[in-house]
Design a protein around this nucleic acid. Structure first.
Lengths: 123, 123
DNA sequence: TCGGATCGCCTACAGATGTAATCGAAAGGA
DNA sequence: TCCTTTCGATTACATCTGTAGGCGATCCGA
């Protein structure tokens, strides 16, 4: 169940998650940030690899495949977040908040949002 | 300046950061979590690669090297944290806090710590 | 019907990663 | 002075990642 998705593969997953509906390989390619400069071939490689990893499913539609995510974005993101906090902060969230706050300087909106969240949690 | 450190390499860096003083390859090996089950050869490979990447420095001590970090842990961690939040949360910290809160259920200590942090930031 | 477009599949290939073995030089004990 | 140990350097090798190209089959327009 622990699907590891590389940076390049994630780009493809994001396209599928954002689409909210099954897409063909060509459609996925259209939606990939043009800055990546990928050819269709590259997108197809990503799709195969993700399918092999079980990160997405495909259904046949005539000669083509319609691809859709096999895992929910929020599950994946939750998983990776835990891994990350574990890896660098011994599983504690507060040092991460501290570090980012110090580096980037959270703006007021951030602070307010997080405070609201925490208030919610306590109630 | 953007040193990428793999999972295995990080293990070695953590040993050096924790030591707080230069170590020989053998000493590093001793301090690596035994669960990894690494041979000395593996540790040496990691040390070479990290040196090649500029993540650590070595000074000669007779026939051996004394290794020490070339980057500060907090700098590395800050870098990776920003990358991570960028990659999965569009750079916003609050959704990350939200996600982890929902999954793990932050305990009261966490919540209190983060609130204290935020209070600090506002003042 | 036939030729180009398009599809998924297989292959390619360099660099990174995980995990080591080997090798020549040097150091140190017998 | 040798032999064993120990060092760093070099080499090994499978897997993963980034980035494609080519191939045989099929579909669609002329």
């Amino acid at each position: 169940m622990d699907v590891r998705i590389s940076d390049a593969e994630l780009e493809v997953m994001e396209a599928l998650w954002a689409a909210g509906q099954p897409l063909t390989a060509a459609e996925v390619a259209e939606r990939i940030d043009a800055d990546r400069g990928w050819t269709l071939a590259t997108v197809k490689t990503m799709l195969s690899r993700l399918a092999a990893k079980g990160a997405l499913k495909h259904r046949e539609d005539g000669r083509r495949f319609l691809y859709s995510p096999a895992i929910k974005r929020e599950d994946y993101v939750g998983h990776e977040s835990r891994r990350f906090v574990e890896r660098l902060f011994g599983g504690r969230l507060s040092p991460l908040v501290a570090r980012l706050a110090e580096e980037d300087g959270l703006d007021e909106v951030d602070i307010a949002e997080i405070e609201a969240l925490l208030k919610e949690l306590k109630s």
